[in-house]
């Protein structure tokens, strides 16, 4: 009978639900680390080298290396267990239990004489006051005790639990070309306004273009074996400077013409001076005579 009573209580209490509210709090930074991995996506790159009057395009096939910077944090998961009805269950169950227990304990105070003022359909007298008190007492106990136990269990299970775990966060991501390998192939100079230049073959992973060739070619982009070639910004600037200087330095220096231009179109000549200065950055480029002539023409005009 005790086991049966315990089983009934467990069944009554075991299914009592608790409201759980979870929140996450970020703790301190534990460490940072970087992770590098190749994406195995090789794409063609080209670097430029100038030794006037030649521009060398060095082709290579590079992988893309992704560098990830990670931060490892401590993270607290805080679970708050609560039940709004637990206190009400304890108080209500407590009242019912006390009433039921009082009736049962004090049942001997009630009369054991049957109620002779009424006879039911079966010909029985009405129950005695003691029987009625006992029935009510048992009923109230049966309703009250599980409620009290359930409420107490719920109250004891209420509260906060804290679980700490590590969490990882990606802080930064950088993708750069890596593991370059020289590569040969057919180079197409494409995208210019004029007729497309004929494709050219590389030799030892390089294509050499002279200033005269560059001046006559019109192209915007490069493709190696049909795949667009990527140039980094520095190499792209150098290519454009070489192309400009190939045109600028092709004309012989004429101080008289420059003096005339200084008078008629000084702004244009100043711009030409800036371009000539840019040409001096190219190794071996004979830009100095032109630059001095322009300076001279502009200087005489100023006087």
């Amino acid at each position: 009978m005790k086991r049966l009573g315990a089983a009934v209580l467990v069944m009554a209490v075991g299914c009592a639900p608790l409201d759980v509210e979870r929140r996450t709090e970020r703790g301190p930074l534990l460490r940072t680390y970087s992770q590098e991995k190749a994406l195995n996506e090789r794409i063609p790159f080209a670097k430029t080298q100038v030794q006037w009057p030649q521009l060398t395009l060095a082709f290579s096939s590079s992988d893309i290396c992704r560098t990830e910077q990670h931060g490892e944090y401590a993270e607290d998961i805080i679970s708050t267990h609560s039940n709004m009805g637990a206190a009400a269950a304890v108080s209500t169950g407590g009242i019912l239990t006390v009433l039921g227990g009082t009736l049962l304990v004090g049942r001997t105070l009630f009369s054991d004489t049957p109620n002779r003022s009424a006879i039911d359909e079966q010909g029985r007298y009405g129950a005695s006051s003691r029987d009625v008190a006992t029935g009510w007492g048992l009923g109230l106990l049966i309703a009250g005790v599980p409620a009290v136990v359930a409420g107490i269990v719920q109250l004891s299970r209420s509260g906060e639990t804290r679980e700490t775990r590590k969490t990882d966060e990606l802080l930064s991501l950088r993708e750069v070309p890596c593991q370059p390998k020289p590569v040969d192939g057919v180079v197409e100079l494409a995208g210019g306004p004029g007729p497309q230049p004929p494709p050219r073959l590389t030799l030892n992973g390089a294509l050499v273009l002279t200033a005269d060739e560059i001046r006559q070619l019109s192209f915007v982009g490069l493709a190696l074996d049909g795949t667009p070639v990527t140039l980094e910004e520095e190499d792209l600037d150098r290519l454009e400077t070489f192309r400009t200087c190939a045109t600028l330095l092709a004309t012989p220096v004429d101080p008289q013409a420059l003096a005339g231009e200084a008078r008629s179109q000084p702004d244009r000549l100043r711009m030409k001076r800036e371009l000539a200065r840019g040409c001096t950055t190219l190794p071996g480029a004979p830009a100095q005579p032109l630059l001095e002539a322009i300076e001279g023409a502009l200087g005489s005009t100023a006087l």
């Binding site: 049957p114 109620n115 002779r116 006879i119 039911d120 079966q122 010909g123 029985r124 007298y125 009405g126 129950a127 005695s128 029987d131 009625v132 006992t134 029935g135």
Partner: peptide, 8 residues
């Protein structure tokens, strides 16, 4: 027997 007493 809580709701009724002995036979009348």
């Amino acid at each position: 027997t809580a709701c009724s007493g002995p036979d009348a």
